[in-house]
């Protein structure tokens, strides 16, 4: 089955791009808690739950928004999400530990604890975009294109999906990235890109 990459987005500490086009620069070198909000407002998103998410989920959420702007609606059960991640939910994990470090001030926070799993970001994407297909979070050092290509290609062939969001989303104290690809088995969808999905799928040259 020949699959296509039909959209791409990337968020890094310096800039944001969608389908090879510039979206926003982090000129002031703001930390993510500011830059993420700036991007949210820049994209005129209305989704108050965004502010309750941890950084990892916010990254995945913003990246998915950029990736799916051309899609008006889709059959959620024909959409899968398969992501790579390295640092798990480290940022929320540390926050949870801080809340229980002092026995005389022992107040673990439910709103923090529920984000202490890396697959929660996939859950947030599923809720926002009504995705009810498979969602799997693999832990890997970096974007493992070979593995993700094999897995996603097989997923389409075995379970007849129309779309799969794949890529790598990671947040740690030192850096962050959301690099996402919309892979599709559907043709003529009015998508911004139509590139072959192969073992070098991350080597897009615009």
């Amino acid at each position: 089955m020949q699959l296509q990459i039909q959209a791409h987005s990337i968020i890094t500490p310096t800039s944001v791009q969608a389908n090879g086009e510039f979206v926003l620069n982090n000129e002031e070198k703001h930390p993510f808690n500011l830059f993420g909000k700036e991007l949210y407002r820049h994209l005129s998103i209305q989704y108050p739950k965004f502010f309750k998410m941890d950084e990892l989920s916010q990254l995945a959420f913003l990246g998915t928004h950029l990736l799916t702007m051309h899609i008006e609606n889709w059959d959620g059960d024909k959409v899968a999400i398969v992501l790579g991640n390295k640092s798990s939910s480290l940022s929320s994990d540390k926050r949870h530990y801080q809340s229980i470090a002092d026995r005389s001030n022992y107040f673990p926070s439910p709103a923090v604890f529920v984000y202490t799993l890396p697959n929660i970001m996939l859950g947030e994407m599923c809720i926002r975009y009504k995705v009810t297909g498979e969602n799997t979070c693999f832990i890997m050092e970096q974007l493992d294109v070979d593995f993700l290509h094999t897995y996603v290609q097989h997923l389409f062939e075995a379970e007849h999906y129309h779309y799969c969001i794949t890529g790598f989303v990671d947040y740690s104290d030192s850096s962050y990235i959301a690099e996402l690809y919309l892979v599709s088995s559907q043709k003529d969808t009015g998508a911004p890109l139509a590139l072959d999905f192969d073992k070098n799928f991350n080597q897009i040259i615009f």
Partner: peptide, 17 residues
């Protein structure tokens, strides 16, 4: 305010804290 079940649990913590 559109709060949900996690918010309710968070409010329980807030009242105690």
């Amino acid at each position: 305010l559109g709060l949900d079940s996690i918010d309710a649990l968070e409010l329980i913590v807030l009242l105690e804290k």
